[in-house]
Amino acid sequence: MAVKVAHAMGAKVTVLSQTVKKKEDGLRLGADHYYATNDPETFKKLAGSFDLIVNTVSAKIDLNAYLSLLAVDGTLVNVRAPAEPLSVHVLSLIGQRRSFAGSMIGGIRETQEMLDFCAEHSITRLTGN
């Protein structure tokens, strides 16, 4: 849903996933680009590319590697929580004024705004529109 909503908001959307298994789905849902993070070249190629990364998985990831993908003043937002603590090297943040944030589901007002947005843009399910 994050891909569909971001696409509907006019964002240039890139899906990062561990392998290419979900590439077709990501592109069908509105992603402009798709990269596999198990390919070490991905992190080199995309370094400093993103203003925002929304991490929607609860698996433990190398936060510092993902932070390196952010542009100056970029933000990585976690919306799921892994079972294990995540480690951040402070230099991954301060050198480029990057931020690491978290967000949970909003309240009634925010949920209604999202439902209204989805209705306006015919976002009704994970497949197709």
Rank of each mutant, 00 (worst) to 15 (best):
Met1Thr: 15
Met1Asn: 15
Met1Cys: 12
Ala2Asp: 02
Ala2Leu: 13
Ala2Lys: 00
Lys4Ile: 03
Val5Thr: 14
Val5Pro: 13
His7Asp: 02
Ala8Cys: 01
Met9Gln: 11
Met9Glu: 14
Gly10Lys: 00
Gly10Arg: 01
Val13Gln: 00
Thr14Glu: 14
Thr14Ser: 11
Val15Arg: 04
Leu16Val: 10
Ser17Leu: 05
Ser17Ile: 04
Ser17Trp: 03
Ser17Cys: 05
Gln18Ile: 15
Gln18Asn: 09
Lys23Gly: 02
Glu24Asn: 14
Glu24Cys: 10
Glu24Gln: 13
Asp25His: 15
Arg28Ala: 08
Arg28Gln: 07
Arg28Asp: 03
Ala31Ser: 04
His33Asp: 11
Ala36Arg: 10
Thr37Asp: 03
Asn38Pro: 11
Asp39Tyr: 07
Pro40Leu: 03
Glu41Val: 05
Glu41Phe: 06
Glu41Pro: 00
Thr42Ile: 09
Thr42Cys: 12
Thr42Arg: 08
Phe43Arg: 04
Leu46Cys: 04
Leu46Ala: 00
Leu46Asn: 01
Leu46Phe: 07
Ala47Glu: 06
Ala47Ile: 05
Gly48His: 05
Ser49Val: 08
Ser49Asn: 09
Ser49His: 00
Phe50Ala: 02
Phe50Pro: 11
Asp51Thr: 03
Asp51Ala: 10
Leu52Met: 05
Leu52Ile: 02
Leu52Asp: 07
Ile53Lys: 04
Ile53Thr: 04
Asn55Gly: 02
Asn55Glu: 08
Thr56Ser: 13
Ala59Leu: 03
Ile61Gly: 00
Leu63Gln: 01
Leu63Lys: 01
Asn64Cys: 06
Asn64Met: 02
Tyr66Asn: 00
Ser68Pro: 04
Ser68Thr: 08
Leu69Val: 08
Leu69Cys: 11
Ala71Phe: 01
Ala71Lys: 09
Val72Thr: 07
Asp73Gly: 04
Gly74Ala: 05
Gly74Pro: 00
Gly74Ile: 06
Thr75Pro: 14
Leu76Pro: 06
Asn78Lys: 09
Asn78His: 11
Asn78Ala: 15
Val79Cys: 04
Arg80Asp: 03
Arg80Tyr: 00
Ala83Pro: 05
Ala83Gln: 05
Glu84Cys: 03
Pro85Cys: 13
Pro85Gln: 09
Leu86Ala: 05
Leu86Asn: 08
Ser87Pro: 01
Ser87Gln: 10
Val88Trp: 01
Val88Pro: 03
His89Thr: 10
Val90Tyr: 03
Leu91Ile: 04
Ser92Trp: 04
Leu93Asp: 05
Gly95Trp: 07
Gly95Asn: 15
Gln96Tyr: 02
Gln96Glu: 15
Gln96Leu: 05
Arg97Phe: 08
Arg98His: 02
Phe100Cys: 06
Phe100Gln: 00
Ala101Glu: 10
Ala101Thr: 12
Ala101Trp: 03
Ala101His: 11
Gly102Glu: 09
Met104Asp: 08
Met104Trp: 08
Met104Leu: 14
Met104Lys: 09
Ile105Glu: 01
Ile105Ser: 07
Gly107Arg: 02
Gly107Asp: 11
Ile108Glu: 14
Ile108Trp: 10
Ile108His: 14
Ile108Ala: 15
Arg109Ala: 14
Arg109Asn: 12
Arg109Gln: 15
Glu110Gln: 15
Leu115Gln: 13
Asp116Arg: 12
Asp116Trp: 14
Asp116Ala: 12
Cys118Phe: 11
Glu120Phe: 13
Ser122Met: 12
Ser122Pro: 03
Arg125His: 15
Gly128Ile: 12
Asn129Trp: 13
